[in-house]
Design a protein around this nucleic acid. Structure first.
Lengths: 346, 346
DNA sequence: TTGTAGGCGTTATCAC
DNA sequence: GTGATAACGCCTACAA
């Protein structure tokens, strides 16, 4: 009764057909397009399939039908709540339509991104979800050559002809900065994600800069680029505080919530009061942002929705229906407890 | 120059062979088993492949070779740091060997688990990573019938013949409880994950009970089962505090770190001091557990390592090598700031 | 070392 | 509505 021992070379469609007393093609149709066969033959076939424990052979099906019923997602990492929830949403949306998710992560290494994307393309994915619009030339080539529909996410495509579901990171980031400006802040520092090969990080940083520039301000000398993680956020703030520019800022704009939370923890450790001594903002609105005390002022991005929409759009396109090239998801400034007017005297 | 417009029906291996002036099989070998062909013919083939932009057709390859070079992972959710990091690790380990990850999540719904597992099996995964040892009978049947190697994770298989990489949730949980007992605690409460269909949650709860029973204690009436999430942890503690048993406990054992963090946040809100008024323990040791103040006392589980090992073991087995049926990963009690002796008088 | 030929399990295109 | 039959693109004995 050991597992491996009871393995029987599984039944093929031909076996089902024979058992049901119909031809191969009829069996195929009965299972795939029940509407095309008579009710009783369908029943015969289904019973035979059930009795034999028939399991369709995906590869054979894919080879013959030229579709794998599989969608690939290429993410920087799944080890970030926003991508985790997007992944979850994609997988669910796909499963509901009989599609399966092929997942690849590249850990923010552009070359790895090309490699894993190629791997997915070889696997014959019917569609692709990518993050951002900034990719290696080879990746675009591979995707175009494969002729596979593709959705960019978390961004709008500035070049204007790729399909995407996202929002303007630049405007959103400017909006947050504006909030701080309106509170009266004039001395800013920024914890940014690495901008190389990451248009979201780049746009967010640009948004801060533009909003500041519009008031004749800047954050020069008080900008740190680091990896998007809690620990790195903490370390980055530490580094910032040791710079010549010192603690000469009252507002800290962070490229995402992880960086912001890291900064908050570092502040707590150092006795810097938030928001009295320092206002901090995040970006994403992960679950933790709302639960912490004080709550993190941040920009809400509906991560699950981004994934769900991207998957749904691909399914639409695969079904031959048109979708708008660009789909914006609503983002929203959420003001919680980490922002306040700067202290009068410092 | 639009993407779809430049799509050309991609080159097949036959084209590569013709261009290189060799036979189909030679081309196949040159690409798959470079050692079996002469150096110059290999070069010819590779050049031809590169020039034509040849991309192997995964389905065809899978159909002929009877392997998909694909591994399936079936997780409760990827929206939990421990599964996210495990997923990340699996994907990386696989990518390094030319395998790709097929991901499915069932959101703790047993029926969905069977369904998505079947979907992966149909896709022809060469191996399967499952979480826990507690699954529907149909799932076992499907896996066994497919004859696909499978690794259970985060658990040891009590039935004794399934492959698994994990640890004893029961012992680990008992160890944490023991730590609290040694600090002098006698009045316990428990925030457990839902135990139905989840052997990890069940075993952890059993571990607490056993450790307490060994001292003639119990937590009856002060046990809450809830969903593994921060928000639910918070709500669960709230509920617990409103029970008749009231606040009559000095130690709170939580089924995982998310629950523990939720409990900590609720305590902060209510002015319950941790650990002075209440000691709290977690399970998993997610990144946040170390960064928070006070740091969370918890049990460290090397989540990434679990994933990495599971993937590596599958690759080993697929390569025809034997692996020990059971592989234990080291877990370790990490004492931080949320546990202390109970207050003298209450 | 290289070439030939026969599948792999389905779907799709035809007639019937 | 149903049934032959030819792809689908590649792998792999086996023969040369």
């Amino acid at each position: 009764m050991l597992g491996a021992a009871m393995r029987k070379s599984s039944a093929r469609l031909a076996d089902v057909a024979r058992t049901a007393g119909v031809s191969l093609s009829t069996a195929s149709r009965a299972l795939a397009e029940p509407g095309l066969v008579r009710e009783d033959t369908r029943a015969k076939v289904e019973k035979a399939a059930a009795r034999l424990g028939y399991v369709p052979h995906g590869a054979a099906r894919a080879l013959a039908s030229r579709r794998s019923r599989t969608i690939g997602a290429v993410l920087p990492t799944v080890d970030n709540p926003i991508f985790a929830s997007a992944t979850q949403a994609i997988a669910q949306e796909l499963a509901a339509s009989g599609y399966t998710l092929l997942l690849a992560a590249y850990d923010y290494a552009p070359d790895a991104e090309v490699a894993v994307t190629r791997a997915l393309l070889e696997r014959g994915v019917d569609g692709l979800v990518l993050v951002g619009a900034d990719h290696q030339r080879e990746l675009f080539q591979a995707v175009d050559q494969a002729g596979v529909p593709c959705e960019f996410t978390w961004t709008l495509d500035s070049s204007g002809y790729r399909h995407c579901v996202g929002f303007s990171n630049r405007l959103a980031s400017a909006q947050i900065t504006q909030h701080l400006l309106e509170l009266g802040h004039r001395k800013f520092a920024v914890l940014s994600g690495h901008t190389a090969g990451n248009d979201r990080a780049r746009e967010r940083l640009a948004g801060v800069r533009e909003a500041l520039a519009a008031r004749g301000l800047d954050a020069d000398g008080r900008i740190v680029e680091t990896t998007f993680s809690l620990g790195h956020g903490r370390a980055a703030l530490r580094e910032l505080l040791e710079r010549p520019a010192g603690r000469d800022f009252t507002a800290l704009v962070c490229g995402n919530d992880l960086l912001a939370l890291g900064a908050m923890l570092e502040c707590r450790e150092r006795g810097i009061r938030v928001p009295e001594d320092l206002s901090i903002t995040g970006f994403d609105d992960i679950e933790l942002a709302a639960e912490l005390a004080p709550g993190l002022t941040t920009l809400h991005v509906p991560s699950g929705e981004v994934g769900r929409r991207a998957a749904a759009r691909l399914l639409e396109r695969l079904a031959g229906r048109k979708v708008a090239r660009e789909e914006q998801v609503p983002v929203e400034l959420i003001v919680r407890g980490t922002t306040a007017p700067p202290a009068k005297k410092r």
